[in-house]
Computed example of a mutant assay.
Amino acid sequence: MSEHAFIPRDRDVVYRVIAERRDMRHFAGGVVEEPVLARLLAAAHQAPSVGLMQPWRFVRIADLTLRQALHDHVEQERRRTAEAMGERSDEFMRLKVQGILDCAEVLVVALGADRERHVFGRRTMPHMDLASVSCAIQNLWLSARAEGLGMGWVSMFEPEVVGRLIGAPAGAEAVAILCLGPVDAFYPRPMLEQESWTVARRLDELLAVDVWPD
């Protein structure tokens, strides 16, 4: 064991919070206390970012009319997605895909408009700004689970529409609508597995040495 390793009890907590993180769709209302929200956002802001570009921007949605507008847009996109599902359309429409009106807090996470000026880390892989934002979202997600709060990542939206709703400048791009707050219970398994929509693949199916996995 490395001399820099956490003690076993602390190490096990890290693995536990990863294993018990869930993409939540069902919320119990309530509130997220301001000190807790501050801790979650601070954890997100500590995420790694290529070239220390910190491309993330967070918009806390406090206005109920704006929250309703986000919900309505996501609902429109949900119906369009269902139409594209073909024979699974009815099955898809029975899935709950967001909790924008039910959760305590809604956050829009976006790529900043100034990210194009960052060359370090983006010259050959320009999508590393998105990877960095995803790391920030994961930090927030894991921290929320450790605080006993549920979080769901809503991705059924047109970035341009959400950008207009939040007054984003040209060049910015909305990446996620995050639903955050207390829940009655965490799903014992990923919800899409519980609903028999799909089955998660095993790691050994996705891992290989030196050659592409089959």
Results as ranks from 00 to 15, higher is better:
V14Q: 07
E75Q: 09
W56Y: 10
G30D: 06
E91L: 00
R57F: 11
V109G: 13
G112E: 11
V59F: 15
D72P: 10
P48L: 07
G112D: 13
S49D: 08
R39Y: 13
F120D: 04
G29H: 06
H45I: 09
K96S: 03
L41H: 13
V109Y: 09
L64I: 03
A47V: 12
A47Q: 12
E91Q: 04
Q98T: 09
E20K: 07
R79Y: 06
V119L: 12
R94I: 00
V31Q: 13
A43H: 14
A44H: 13
L95Q: 04
A82Q: 00
R94P: 00
R88G: 01
R80T: 08
V119K: 09
E105S: 02
Y15N: 05
R11W: 13
V36C: 15
L95Y: 01
E33C: 05
G51I: 02
A43C: 15
L64P: 15
L95N: 00
G29N: 05
R94K: 11
E20H: 03
V109T: 12
A69Y: 05
P48T: 05
A43D: 14
Q54W: 06
A113T: 12
D90H: 02
G86W: 08
H26T: 11
E105A: 07
V32P: 06
E87L: 01
A84Y: 01
R16L: 09
A113H: 15
E20I: 07
L101G: 13
T81P: 00
V50A: 09
A28C: 05
D23Y: 01
A84R: 08
A84E: 07
R57Y: 10
V13P: 01
H73L: 08
